[in-house]
Design a protein around this nucleic acid. Structure first.
Lengths: 328, 328
DNA sequence: TTGAAAGCGCTAACAG
DNA sequence: CTGTTAGCGCTTTCAA
């Protein structure tokens, strides 16, 4: 087995307290004994047992992250950002995943707490009041990213609605006669937390009010490819699709291409998120960058503040940015 | 604070030992007291402190995973697989990330050990003998995925060489006059563990020996786009590119498209890995599926065997499969 | 069937 | 400056 403070104490002929003082750089110990102990520790490859330390101190320097589905680019990019930011403060990150399952979600949070994480970063798929209530009972600080749960629960993200409004206006100003908001998650509104998509939808509708002469339509179905195709083929108007996620846009583009239709010639299309798959896509998709890495970074920073006992704002907005493409 | 076994004992008027026996489903306790304790535990929302349990038992039911760069699709897909498989055995997974940094890599392993994980799954960027030696000293079972470190260190992956050979032959049989193996990581051979890419390269070369009349070339540079373009433009032969990763293939396709060149008309191209970005790409890229999810799953299974004291094979091969596309 | 006591490796309050 | 002691919450051996 590995060497403990007890071993070090015995070997160095000092008390365990002295060993601790040396290891943790505390005062109340002479430089010579400190050096002696540290040298010996180094020599024997001493390593702090974080379990024991955590148990004794009541904190673990561990933060837990719960997200659904890393296969989603969105999360993959964010996780790196979170990990890096936390590391810079000496914290360790425990990333856990589930597949949009509410029970699993809660279970993961529980298990992280069982392991006594000091704080949590969550991107929940749950949103019901019961879940909000559950969160409120948690004994550790936490912060929500992406899918807001309730307004009294700390949250960091971008202003989805405003971003969607601006995107919509960009499309509208290109003289399309019809704009279709494509948002399949909307049909899961009862089942999941799709806050971001709802906000984007609101932004779309709000913006469209400024353009009464433009036809507005919404597709809220996982059969969106067929529905969109239907619309595009049957209408004589210049049509653009505003998709609530880049993946939907890419899917549509592929589908339309199969019918010989090209953007921007035959239709306009815009995504949302700016996932990095777009790098390989031609024509370059117009979209909105959701600043996912910055969101992750901010989440960690806010959590640290919280851990240090500081009050943090409930609503934290990060800047998004429009990405010019060739499809509008 | 939360309720402990001590609290339960006091409240139920029994000893802590009895509480433990009830909670852990051990025998040596009457059904009635057991029920009484469990009911009370439930009522008070008792939760085992895994830190204390881990400390006392010397095992944590935790497995650590170290990978570089989740932004890579390869890992994102694999992590889900690992998490799911581990969960099914009651283990908890701690995923940690770094950015191809050897020091960070070792540091992460150390920290996971400090938190006393029971086992490790690693996809290392290091490969030197020193690292291998370091791994051999670890006191917990571990398994390597993807980048093999040494032949005495347990490893799970696909037969990269054989897969690359078969892919090469597929290309060769389409009557190309020149085949270029595009493998930028090869120029990092001194810096990183690029075992998989090396194996793919060997497979390519071995296969090409069977086709002496076909021109074979290798690009081992991060300037591969320009070099490939150069080759394609300057040679009159029917040329195909065999890329050691789908991303390189997508990059080339985009670059060539910019020059008005299309696959398969103007050149052939094949990728490797079958990343899911391919879903959105047209024409459909021919590639090899590296069975990444199965690899992750197997890694967990093998680790469990190891945790249970069983011997595991050092070399564990998972089946890959060719993916027919339109670009060859 | 039940309980007392020691211990996992560390920290922290208090004394010398 | 140094050491003694108790304790974090759980497990485990041994005795009743």
């Amino acid at each position: 087995m590995s060497v403990t403070t007890k071993d070090l104490a015995r070997i160095c002929n000092v008390s365990r307290t002295s060993v601790v003082r040396a290891l943790n750089n505390q005062k109340g110990i002479s430089d010579s004994t400190r050096k002696m102990i540290l040298d010996k520790a180094e020599e024997l490859g001493y390593r702090t047992d974080m379990l024991a330390k955590g148990l004794a101190q009541g904190k673990t320097m561990y933060i837990g992250v719960v997200v659904f589905d890393v296969r989603n680019r969105y999360f993959a990019q964010m996780l790196s950002a979170i990990e890096n930011e936390a590391k810079s403060e000496g914290y360790f990150v425990n990333i856990t995943l589930h597949e949009k399952n509410k029970d699993q979600e809660k279970e993961l949070i529980q298990r992280l707490l069982d392991y006594r994480v000091d704080g949590l970063i969550l991107s929940p798929v749950s949103k019901d009041e019961e879940f909000a209530e559950y969160l409120r009972t948690l004994q550790v600080p936490y912060i929500i990213i992406g899918n807001k749960v309730a307004s009294d629960i700390p949250y960091v993200g971008i202003d989805e609605m405003k971003a969607a409004m601006e995107a919509t206006r960009k499309i509208a100003e290109k003289n399309y006669e019809k704009i279709v908001f494509v948002c399949p998650p909307l049909c899961d509104i009862e089942k999941e937390n799709i806050y971001t998509h709802i906000q984007r939808g609101k932004g779309f509708q709000k913006a469209m009010q400024l353009y009464p002469h433009i036809d507005a339509e919404i597709i809220a179905s996982w059969n969106y490819k067929n529905e969109a195709l239907q619309i595009l083929k049957s209408s004589k108007e210049r049509t653009a699709f505003f998709c609530s996620g880049d993946e939907y846009a890419l899917d549509l583009m592929k589908c339309f291409r199969g019918e010989g239709l090209r953007s921007p010639k035959d239709y306009g299309i815009m995504g949302f998120d700016n996932i990095d798959t777009l790098l390989y896509i031609e024509p370059k998709l117009s979209t909105t960058d959701n600043a996912v890495e910055e969101v992750g970074k901010q989440a960690v920073r806010l959590l640290f503040k919280s851990l240090n006992g500081q009050e943090i704002p409930l609503k934290n907005m990060v800047d998004y940015s429009a990405v010019e493409g060739e499809t509008i």
